[in-house]
Amino acid sequence: MLRSNEQQQRQRPIVVPGEYVGDSKFHIPGLNVYRLSDRMLATTVGLVRIDGKRVDVVALKSFYQPKVGDLVVGIVKEPGTAGWTVDINSPFLAFLPLSEYPEKRIRLSRDSIGRILEAGTVLVGLIKDASIFSSPVITLKGKGLGVVSNGFLLSITASKVPRLIGKKGSMLSTIEKGANVKLTVGQNGRLIVHSEDLNVVMKVKEVIGMIEKESHVYGLTERVEALLAGRRP
């Protein structure tokens, strides 16, 4: 794709591990950046983002690191004795304790825990607790949380989720409006398309592929809009 000079300049630089990203006299190291005397270096392949004094490297691809308060889309992996282990697309398996399941009356003597939520069940949860000492805990208690029984599950690399949502949800609403569909996006890089129509799902998939590949190139929103309108960007 040919781009004008100005657009090329506005493209953010891609760095590799060990590459210089800034001077620590003027900046403070943020995400994926470490300090070696006065120099700040990247720890991963990604894009440099400077926000005030803080310098981050946004990884091109990453797994999800659980943070308290994040909305995540999980898949029940295994029912246990007092809850379920949940796959949240992260190096860590999350735990959903029985106490965080919204149904009040559960008698373990009568209901098998594996029958309440079977392995493979998709759920929208909130990270309630995340520390380095124990596995992250999620909860289903809250508005908009719970088991999902319809829709398509798609995925995007976790580091691109902020780009998919956009500033104050701008990108997400563009996609929702353009494809006329409701989306639930988990911070862990999984999203649910609430639609039965395959064409809609394929369209959303295409848009996600574009965001994943070209989020560093200038003018993404316009290109997403064009793609949704059926014009080739």
């Binding site: 992996k77 796959d87 493979g120 069940t121 829709g151």
Partner: peptide, 15 residues
């Protein structure tokens, strides 16, 4: 095999 979500199972079969 990794856990495969029921949503995916269900949608693939429905399609």
């Amino acid at each position: 095999r990794p856990v495969i979500s029921k949503l995916e199972q269900q949608e693939l079969r429905r399609l």
